[in-house]
Amino acid sequence: MGFHRYVALGDSFTEGVGDPDPHRPNGLRGWADRVAEALAVHQPDLGYANLAVRGRKLGQILDQQLEPALAMRPDLVTVYAGANDIMRPQVDLDALVAAYDAGLGRIAATGARLLVWTAFDPGGSAIYRALRGRFALYNELVRESADRHGATVVDFWRMRDYRDWRYWDTDRMHMSTLGHQRMAVHVLDTLDVSHDLPLPTLPERETPGRAQRLAADLAWTRSFAVPWVHRRLTGRSSGDTVTPRHPDLGPFA
């Protein structure tokens, strides 16, 4: 079937952080733009809105994005949420997904095709590995909610090719341009939409020496880890001054 009104909700993952494009709003492209572009080939009158904003927690996504999305009467909705909650020092996963479930129920009740994501498996990351159990529990609760509402799950946890760091940005938190393209291909295939978007060609794998690895880790700590911790301690977010890239449903361009 063709989609006429596609609305994307979420945080930095859906906003497109890690995939720079100076000619687009917020200087980003991202997997959702790629999906909309492919959908528009089949449905030239496609309306597309992307309400995602980096740093948003699940409650903020529901409070700030759900009502505007429903007002657009979408027939396709994608939602990625929860990662910014999971990485907080404390989180009540049952309460978190209960709120998520209520929001997903409202979207599903409209009859729109609904796609939701599990969180990525951090088992291959020295930084996030300690949270693996929390991620796994969250994912199981999300799968239960998706089953309850007839939503399609994009199972990021099981996409093992993302264990390859060439799919990730230098901040080690967001997908790179190649990662966003790979995700767009997966989403289009999940929707059973024909497209000509190729799987990305990965660059040759580098094998840095110990000194290079230490230098890279130090640069990452200074440029990304320390600012991230500082924002957490001061109650600020990377999205405090950011607005949605495509706040209104309009033609894809």
Rank of each mutant, 00 (worst) to 15 (best):
M1Y: 00
G2Q: 14
R5P: 00
Y6C: 07
Y6E: 05
G10W: 07
S12M: 13
T14M: 01
D19P: 02
P22A: 13
G27Y: 12
L28N: 03
R34Q: 15
R34G: 01
R34T: 06
V35K: 07
E37N: 10
V41L: 09
P44M: 06
P44V: 02
N50T: 09
N50C: 09
K57R: 15
G59H: 11
L62C: 08
Q64N: 09
Q64V: 08
Q65E: 12
E67T: 15
P68S: 11
P74Q: 05
T78N: 10
A81D: 01
N84H: 12
R88K: 10
Q90H: 15
V91P: 00
D92R: 12
A95Q: 13
L96P: 10
L104W: 07
G105K: 12
I107K: 03
A109D: 13
T110P: 13
A112K: 03
L114K: 08
D121H: 10
S125F: 08
Y128E: 01
L131C: 02
F135P: 02
V142N: 02
R143Q: 12
S145Q: 02
S145G: 07
H149W: 15
G150Q: 08
V153Y: 07
W157M: 02
Y162K: 05
R163G: 14
D164K: 10
T170L: 13
D171S: 04
R172W: 08
H174E: 06
M175G: 06
T177E: 11
G179W: 02
L188E: 02
P198W: 08
E206G: 00
E206S: 13
E206I: 11
P208D: 11
Q212K: 14
L214M: 11
A215P: 05
A215L: 15
A215E: 10
A216C: 04
A225V: 09
V226Y: 04
V226Q: 04
W228Q: 06
W228N: 00
H230T: 14
S238M: 09
G239T: 05
T241H: 03
T243A: 10
T243S: 08
P247N: 10
P247Q: 03
L249F: 10
G250S: 14
P251Q: 13
A253D: 11
